[in-house]
Amino acid sequence: MEIEEKNERPFLNVIKWTIPVLLFCLLVLMILFTPSFQNIAFKVKSLFSGSLASETTSLVGIEKLELRSQRNINSIEMKLEKLKPVKPYIVVNTTENRFSLRNANGDTIRTGACSTGKNELLIAGNKKIVFKTPKGMFAVQNKQEDRPWIKPDWAFIEDGLPIPSARSASRIDYSMLGDYALSIGDGYMLHGTLYQRFLGLPVTHGCVRLGDKDLEVIYHTLSKGSKVFIY
């Protein structure tokens, strides 16, 4: 009998000592994962107090509040509707270099690849020039066919050329912008490109370059004042 008890002791000891070990583990877990434990506590709390408390008590009061809410909802929806574009508009995604042309109802008419700013910082002595497409809401300010590009200073700096005078003929490039150009302000445009193979890549100096066919549709769909959303 004594021999049996002695043999059982190590086994019982192990079982006995698992209790403090488990307690210690629980304590460590509680410290490491307090938010998860709290989450469980919130769940338990919700099971005991899942009530729909409201300041209203009577059914008539509730129904009046319902009416007021419904009236407010209708009013806000009307205001939101008024904010939406009344003309077709274009949405440009600069991360994926894609555009989506939509009608006034918000339905997509055409989607396709475009090229946006290359996010480059050109350092020329003390000058720092940023090539990026601005984000936000813009409006078409004017539309032009066969618009020549008047090269700004950075175009010469980037090519390692001397900067000519402001009225120099070397600043004019007749082919760079393609058949159509839609200006959205601050020198930024939606225009065509000679580099069709780069469509879908971020390669521009800030403008949005489009493929010839896409540009033609966009040019004829958007009018002066049409919204241009760039994100």
């Binding site: 270099n97 290359k118 996010n119 480059e120 910082l121 050109l122 350092i123 020329a124 002595g125 940023v130 990026k132 700096i157 980037e158 090519d159 390692g160 050329l161 780069f198 879908g200 890549l201 971020p202 390669v203």
Partner: peptide, 24 residues
């Protein structure tokens, strides 16, 4: 946003050298 810094080339030869094929 990540800006790639580029030092302006001194001349056209250097400009041609630094041109790289664009990629996503």
């Amino acid at each position: 946003i990540v800006f790639i810094e580029k030092i302006a080339p001194k001349d056209t030869i250097e400009a041609n050298k630094v041109q790289v094929e664009p990629a996503m």
